[in-house]
Write a protein that binds this DNA or RNA. Structure first.
Lengths: 161, 161
DNA sequence: TGAAAATACTTAGATATAAAAGCATTTGGC
DNA sequence: GCCAAATGCTTTTATATCTAAGTATTTTCA
C-alpha cells in the first residue's frame, strides 16, 4: 500500500515536471490537495477514522454542542455531507446526536469519550504531515502561498456572485 | 444555482478569515482546489461536460490514440477512474475506444468529431477561470506559489515512499 | 514451446462531496 | 393566536475518486 501510494505520487510529480498545460495552476492546486488528503487519509485509517470524520472531529475538539448546520458552516461543507458523516460517526461511537430543551428541530452534536480521546492520537498525525509537507520551504514563501490561495478563493467567490 | 454557489464560496471565505486551525495550509489548499473545481464544473455543465471528462478531453486534444493506461498516467488518476470516465464519454459520443493491430489487450482512445470540436468552446472557459482566479495577484507571488506547491507534492511523494 | 510473470482492462465496493427536493418545526408579523 | 416564511434536518440521486481483487492477454525465458 505504501508502495502504490508512492508510485502514484511519483506519477503526479513526473507529470508536473514534464508538460505544462494551460490551466496548470488550478491543476497544481488540486494535485497538491489530493496528495495532502491522501497522506492524512493513510495515517488516519490506521485508527479507523476516515478523512471526512476527521474534519468534524477537529471542530468538535474545540466546541461541542453545535448543531448540524453550524457544523456544516464551520467545516465549509454542505449539509448532506455533514449529515451522512455524522450519522456514520454516531454509528462508530465517536459522537452523540442530542435534541435539547424540547426543541425537536435542532440536533446538537457531542463527542463520546472515545471521540474526545482520539484528539491526542490524531492531531500529531496532521502536524507531522504538515511538517513533512513544508520542509525546506521558506517561511516567506509559505506566507505568499497562503495569501495567494486566499486571494484566489476570494476572487472566485466574488465572480460566482 | 449561481446564488447558492456564491453563498457557499462566501462561507469558505468567512471561514478562512476567522479561525485559523492547526493544519491550516492543507485545509487552505484543499479549499482553493474545491472552489476552482466547482467554478469550472459550473461552466462545463452548461455544455453537458463533467469535470472528470474535461480532464481526459484536455489530454486527448493534444494526443489521440493513447491507451487507457497511458491516459491514466497523463491525467494522474487511477485506472478505474479512467475506465469509468471513458465508458461514460463513449456513451456520450465524445470518444471512441478502439483495438488496433489484432492486439486484444490494449484499448486506444480517439476523439469523435464532437469531442474534437468541444475544444474551441471549453478551453476558453478554463482560461477565463484562471484569469479570474489570479486577478490582482503578482506574477512573482504566482511563481512562489507554484514552486511551493510543487515542493509540497514532492516532499510528500518522498515521505510516502 | 509452454508455463510463469507482467501487463491492461474490468468489476465491486467504499469514501467524499454536492444539488435538489421533501418534510417537520419554529418564528415573526399581522 | 394563527398563518406564512424561514430554518434545519433528511432523502435521493449524481459525480469524482480510490483500493482491492478479478480476468484476459501478452511477454519472457528456461
Amino acid at each position: 500500500m505504501a508502495r502504490s501510494n508512492h508510485q502514484e505520487t511519483q506519477t503526479v510529480l513526473r507529470h508536473w515536471q514534464e508538460d505544462v498545460p494551460d490551466d496548470r495552476l488550478a491543476h497544481l492546486i488540486r494535485d497538491a490537495g489530493r496528495v495532502l488528503t491522501k497522506s492524512l487519509q493513510t495515517r488516519l485509517s490506521e485508527h479507523s477514522v476516515s478523512f471526512g470524520h476527521w474534519s468534524f472531529l477537529r471542530i468538535l475538539w474545540v466546541t461541542e454542542g453545535l448543531t448540524q448546520r453550524e457544523l456544516s458552516e464551520e467545516a465549509g461543507l454542505m449539509e448532506p455531507t455533514t449529515f451522512t458523516a455524522l450519522k456514520a460517526m454516531e454509528a462508530n461511537g465517536l459522537i452523540e446526536r442530542r435534541q435539547l430543551n424540547g426543541n425537536r428541530k435542532n440536533i446538537h452534536i457531542y463527542l463520546t469519550q472515545r471521540g474526545r480521546d482520539l484528539k491526542k492520537t490524531l492531531v500529531p498525525l496532521a502536524e507531522e504531515i504538515n511538517e513533512i509537507a513544508v520542509k525546506g520551504v521558506d517561511d516567506d514563501d509559505l506566507q505568499v502561498t497562503r495569501r495567494t490561495l486566499l486571494k484566489i478563493i476570494s476572487n472566485l467567490a466574488n465572480a460566482n456572485e
